[in-house]
Design a protein around this nucleic acid. Structure first.
Lengths: 114, 114
DNA sequence: ATTTTATATAAGTGAATAATAATATAGTTA
DNA sequence: TAACTATATTATTATTCACTTATATAAAAT
């Protein structure tokens, strides 16, 4: 209520996109790297990176570098409407579990981070 | 949580526009006709009507005809995320009160509906 | 040092859309 | 009936934006 209407519009525009809302729902479950999101969502890597950059600039996600990987997670200090929106959306917990099982079953190339 | 991701995206896209979010915030206070919204928001009448049509089609607002006027109000059965969003936005109660006072002071051409 | 891998940035393209101007419809009033 | 008012619809335009391809950067592995 204290934040401006313009701030709300910015956040709503960011969540009003299927790719970005999916990213947020996945990050709600677990910190993930870009390549995880590319595989699970199925658009190009630059596409994912551009969405992440926008959401980082708006304070919706935070990043952490580890080697060549860049891990992303939800920013806890984001506009509170983000949590309200995510809680009204269907969970992607199952989708993430399926992805992780199949990834682990193919003799993971990297250490299992998480 | 039961409603699909696509349904959420549709609602979020509709609220992620300054004009439409303003309309919803005003309707949250009171049922209003198109000309009220035109005056308060300051875009053309077709612009307002088009936004209202979209929101009506998505089940966000309802309409009621009275003479040549068409009154709009929030649809109570809209996707619950709408209420969550509106409650996180700054209220436009004051803006509406100012408008109504100045409208009443100019010897209202129509009966004061509401 | 060269190659490979993960990610970021830049450039370009097509589609969606918010706004306006012009016109149509329909109810009201003279 | 004719003029007026409130709203809806249509056509048009300009802008935004999601995505892709191509390229750059940077860390890791060979």
């Amino acid at each position: 209520m204290e934040r401006s209407l313009e701030e709300m519009i910015e956040v709503l525009k960011l969540t009003a996109d299927k790719t970005r809302l999916t990213i947020l729902l996945l990050l709600q479950e677990k910190e993930l790297c870009v390549c995880d999101l590319v595989e699970m969502i199925g658009i190009s890597q630059p596409g994912i990176s551009q969405h992440l950059r926008k959401m980082k600039q708006a304070g919706l996600v935070q990043e952490r570098k580890q080697g060549t990987w860049m891990y992303y997670r939800l920013d806890e200090s984001a506009h509170p409407v983000v949590q309200a929106i995510l809680q009204h959306a269907p969970s992607l917990k199952e989708k993430l579990e399926v992805y992780e099982k199949q990834r682990n079953s193919m003799m993971c190339e990297r250490e299992n981070n998480g």
